[in-house]
């Protein structure tokens, strides 16, 4: 338990400075989610998903690390631990728990993680609601893959097509790791767009595979 508290104390908010504890009025370090004097939980400050989970802001992140951080913070803020506390503390802990869930669900998904990192830079991946893109090369490729999905009528054809699309997904994820590491956000936005289309194609291929006669789930 001591380890978890240490983690949360050092990485809870990422801000510097202090604020008065809402319960005992003691000045509390902004980085600490708990008052060092009375131990009461402090309201969450504006933050980002990486800080919320105590992770560096890198695109490449290991699943193990993400899971470990997530479950660690979940234990710290789990509403069950606040069940006997006053309503305000329960409400605050629930806010933390919701933020952490949101952070985990965003960061564990390679596409959402990329789009989130771009949003932190003020870049909205083209095609937010209503936007259209005219990147002929990408769109030709997407059109062609869509046609192949519609045209595939044996399990073998569909399996090799799905392998091809999933390889594109994997390649885009690797490329994102590289361009984010170089802080090349323009290229990251392009690759994220590609990943968005490829992810969508992968879902469509999976759906179509399920409706082939004699299909097997894989």
């Amino acid at each position: 338990m001591a380890t978890i508290d240490n983690t949360s104390r050092s990485q809870g908010t990422g801000a510097s400075g202090s604020r008065p504890c809402w319960s005992c009025n003691e000045e509390v370090n902004l980085r600490s989610p708990f008052c060092h004097l009375c131990g009461v939980i402090q309201p969450p400050l504006p933050s980002d998903h990486f800080v919320r989970l105590g992770l560096p802001r890198n695109y490449d992140l290991s699943d193990d690390n993400l899971e470990r951080q997530y479950f660690g913070f979940q234990r710290t803020y789990h509403p069950d631990r606040f069940a006997q506390k006053p309503p305000r503390e329960q409400a605050i802990s629930m806010e933390y728990a919701a933020n952490i869930n949101d952070a985990y669900n965003t960061l564990r998904n390679p596409l959402l993680r990329a789009e989130y990192m771009l949003r932190l830079q003020g870049i909205e991946v083209a095609g937010g609601d209503g936007d259209t893109v005219a990147d002929p090369e990408l769109l030709m490729e997407v059109m062609e893959l869509n046609e192949l999905i519609v045209g595939a009528n044996t399990i073998d054809q569909m399996t090799s097509l799905r392998e091809r699309i999933n390889a594109e997904v994997a390649a885009s994820e690797i490329a994102l790791g590289v361009v984010f590491a170089e802080n090349d956000f323009d290229r990251a936005a392009n690759v994220a767009l590609r990943l968005r289309y490829m992810t969508r194609l992968s879902e469509q291929a999976q759906q179509s595979a399920g409706s082939l006669p004699g299909n097997r789930k894989n």
Binding site: G127, T132, V142, L201
Partner: peptide, 13 residues
């Protein structure tokens, strides 16, 4: 004309 709406993954020729 080839355009796409990535929000929904649509592509239109």
């Amino acid at each position: 004309g080839l355009v796409g709406a990535p929000a929904c993954g649509d592509v239109m020729k």
